[in-house]
Write a protein that binds this DNA or RNA. Structure first.
Lengths: 213, 213
DNA sequence: CGGTACGTTGTGGTC
DNA sequence: GACCACAGCGTACCG
């Protein structure tokens, strides 16, 4: 018989098997797993390796407990845990909800580039600098408007790859009807050889900017 | 004084604060957190909400335990946990390493399209169907070669968005030197309005294919 | 090892 | 709610 704390956070180490149906379908063989239920009604089922849980679910709206089985359900998804043996069941009280405060994010690089615009793009003649400028093909990290030229800047916090270049190309395309001359840059600490070549083929530019200058 | 099981999997619920340095930098305020150490030398630190851990690390090569502090390190990263109080420390034995077997993946859709090629692309005249065809601009999900035409197919398992269209455009570009006529399709269960319009502007096509037909 | 793309991505933000 | 993009993405795979 399974008894779970009501509406609280708890962890359960148990011998069980798991099935998931919803966005995809999965099965997990009988074995020992760590089941983590948090008070935001999220569920994770962890195996003995890897950071990512074997199964998981958010916004659970229904929990059905029967002898040997727990079913978690949202509107469109369901996880069924068939429990053979419960090894540890612990209620976790006063579990902190603080989040990590991150530094060295993309946003930080954007701020840095805007603050130092003149040194990164000297004599650009830009009279207006816009962040997250919306286009029909997505938002541009930094758009610099000069009378005759637009500067389109896509910023990445780490190695730039092919997909980042295509992202920039798409923004350039979105602006083509608006202005005659566009200078487009991808900015970040590093770029892959392939991405570099692709960039050059399209007359786009790379500007190396690191967190610590 | 902290005593941890050597080289095993364990979980610790503790009052602590955490700092991370490496790819980025983060701090986590003093509070109760669940620390999960697995035998593949991975570490997760969970707060009382969200599926994703507050901090994490893989491939740990060094653990330094001092009174009130545990330091986990890889070559380039470090997590420092300053422990105020240990609430639960449990060693987890025989923790299963089975992985979930997934269905309804992109690969499954690819297989389905190849198997039913003639019904999806009638009279295509394709004499060769290749999976994960490598180009200088990335691998193509399905490439169908007819004498005069290449069929380029990009498959998605869920809603198709702008970035998926740019991905397809990039593959088409990579093949341009090889063949005169290219027909490019993005295939999946649904597509966003924006992506649809962008697709049409570039004379690409969308083909709706679902898991259950 | 770098490079590329998938993922039940999760999560946040904006429209 | 749709849709877009970041993330210490993690993870797998292929070169």
């Amino acid at each position: 018989m399974i008894e779970l704390p009501e509406l609280k956070s708890w962890i359960l180490y148990a011998t069980c098997e798991v099935t998931y149906t919803g966005r995809a379908t999965s099965t997990l063989e009988l074995g020992n797993y760590l089941i983590v239920y948090k008070k935001d009604h999220s569920l994770s089922i962890h195996g003995g390796t890897l950071i990512i849980p074997r199964n998981y679910m958010s916004n659970i709206i229904k929990i059905i407990i029967t002898p040997e089985t727990i079913i978690f359900a949202t509107k469109r998804e369901q996880i069924t845990i068939k429990i053979t043996m419960m090894i540890h069941l612990i209620e976790l009280n006063d579990w902190s909800e603080y989040k990590t405060t991150m530094r060295r994010t993309e946003k930080e690089l954007v701020t840095k580039i805007i603050a130092g615009w003149e040194s990164y793009f000297p004599q650009s003649g830009v009279v207006e600098l816009l962040q997250e400028y919306p286009t029909t093909l997505g938002p541009i990290d930094i758009l610099g408007k000069a009378p005759e030229v637009y500067y389109v800047i896509e910023v990445k916090r780490k190695l730039i790859s092919l997909k980042d270049v295509t992202q920039l190309l798409r923004y350039v395309e979105a602006l083509l009807p608006e202005v005659k001359t566009i200078r487009a840059y991808i900015v970040g600490p590093a770029i892959s050889a392939n991405a570099r070549k692709y960039l050059n083929n399209h007359s786009l530019d790379y500007l190396k900017v690191d967190f610590d200058d």
